[in-house]
């Protein structure tokens, strides 16, 4: 009940502005991730990358967007029409929702008002993110199934089993973090890292989480759901125009959110040694967090353009036989550490 009583007009306006700003930020970052991906891939391969649209090709995302919007919007004849249309929407919807619990900074003083830079500090923040990550697979599954194409179906099936397998290891590595901080709220977890980042205590947990995040985002070397060489695009084989755009966009949003969550869980969120997140009227916090998450986006792309794709059975072996036992060991070690040395 207290939940409902909190609603007042000012509150709603504040949150609405924040949500719109977050959407704009997320979509902007996702759009420029596509540009970054192509540019970084080019640099890793001694090429130039997109360079014709605008200076250094900076307007490339706009050009891509125009292309996506003006292409023929195709629905296969034998497809499950409504689900086919629903799938990309569901995928991007779930992807966009995750940014609500991420603490982007402390408080921003703007126009004489104090803006809390977190849409909502629910005390189960990290579980919310995990929950959305597990829901993200529905878009892929529905899209793949509704397309009525065997390659799409393969992609969907692979995506679902991959998600389920890697969610476990991800959850278990998060539990170690939760044990350290004693809270599920992302804000508390971040604030406890003001002195020392969690990655110092949890190097193994970090590697596990990074691996699982790559798998959850369907990024190479775990992009089994779409691997273009064997499944010719996998679950989005039959999609075209902006529906395809939604899928691709949502993947980049997922990547951005995962990178931000990694920064929050293991790398101190908006804290950085020697920098106060309250500087510049509170703008320093978001800047620190975004720089960290951009760095991890770079690392994701770097991994993608370095490592070849796993085979499907290798993926399952890695998930079930290596990552999950390691995550359990990590959890036990953390427990023992807390027991013997205190927090």
């Amino acid at each position: 009940m207290s939940l409902i009583l909190l609603f007042s007009l000012g509150f709603i306006i504040e949150k609405a502005v924040l949500i719109i700003a977050l959407f704009a930020l997320t979509l902007g970052v996702a759009a420029y991730s596509t540009y970054g991906e192509r540019k970084i891939a080019a640099f890793f391969q001694d090429r130039l990358g997109p360079s014709n649209a605008g200076p250094w090709g900076l307007l490339q995302p706009l050009a891509d967007g125009v292309k996506m919007f003006t292409k023929e919007d195709f629905v296969p004849n034998q497809s499950e029409r409504w689900l086919y249309i629903l799938a990309p929407g569901a995928f991007i919807f779930v992807a966009l929702m995750a940014s609500a619990v991420i603490p982007w900074g402390t408080t921003l003083t703007l126009g004489g008002l104090n803006w809390n830079l977190q849409v909502t500090d629910v005390n189960i923040g990290i579980l919310y993110v995990v929950g959305l990550a597990s829901l993200g697979v529905y878009g892929i599954m529905l899209g793949g199934w509704a397309s009525n194409n065997k390659f799409s179906l393969y992609g969907a099936i692979r995506a679902s089993s991959q998600m389920i397998s890697y969610e476990l290891a991800m959850g278990l590595s998060i539990i170690a973090i939760v044990m350290l901080s004693g809270s599920l709220s992302l804000k508390t977890i971040v604030d406890q890292q003001a002195g020392m980042w969690n990655v110092v205590y949890q190097p193994l947990g970090f590697i596990l989480f990074l691996t699982c995040a790559l798998a959850e985002c369907n990024r190479a070397p775990f992009d089994m759901a779409e691997c273009e060489t064997e499944l010719i695009g996998g679950y989005h084989t039959e999609y075209s125009a902006m529906k395809l755009g939604f899928f691709l966009f949502a993947e980049y949003i997922n990547m951005f959110i995962s990178c931000t969550v990694i920064s929050c869980l293991y790398f101190g969120g908006y804290h950085f040694p020697g920098l106060d997140p309250n500087w510049l009227g509170g703008l320093m916090g978001p800047i620190i967090l975004l720089s960290k998450s951009f760095f991890f986006i770079f690392v994701f792309m770097w991994i993608r353009w370095t490592l070849p794709r796993f085979r499907y059975d290798q993926l399952m072996h890695l998930g079930w036989k290596s990552l999950i036992p390691l995550a359990i060991v990590n959890m036990m070690l953390t427990g023992a550490g807390i027991l013997f040395f205190g927090k």
Binding site: S2, S134, L135, S160, I164, L184
Partner: peptide, 30 residues
């Protein structure tokens, strides 16, 4: 959530909607 049981709500989503139903769908698609 109306009962302010956020933990139950999110675990409900993760376990039922996020895992069990994915498995159901997985089997049905096959």
């Amino acid at each position: 959530i109306l009962l302010n049981a956020q933990f139950l709500a999110v675990v409900h989503i993760i376990v039922y909607a996020g895992a069990i139903m994915v498995l159901f769908l997985f089997v049905l698609m096959l």
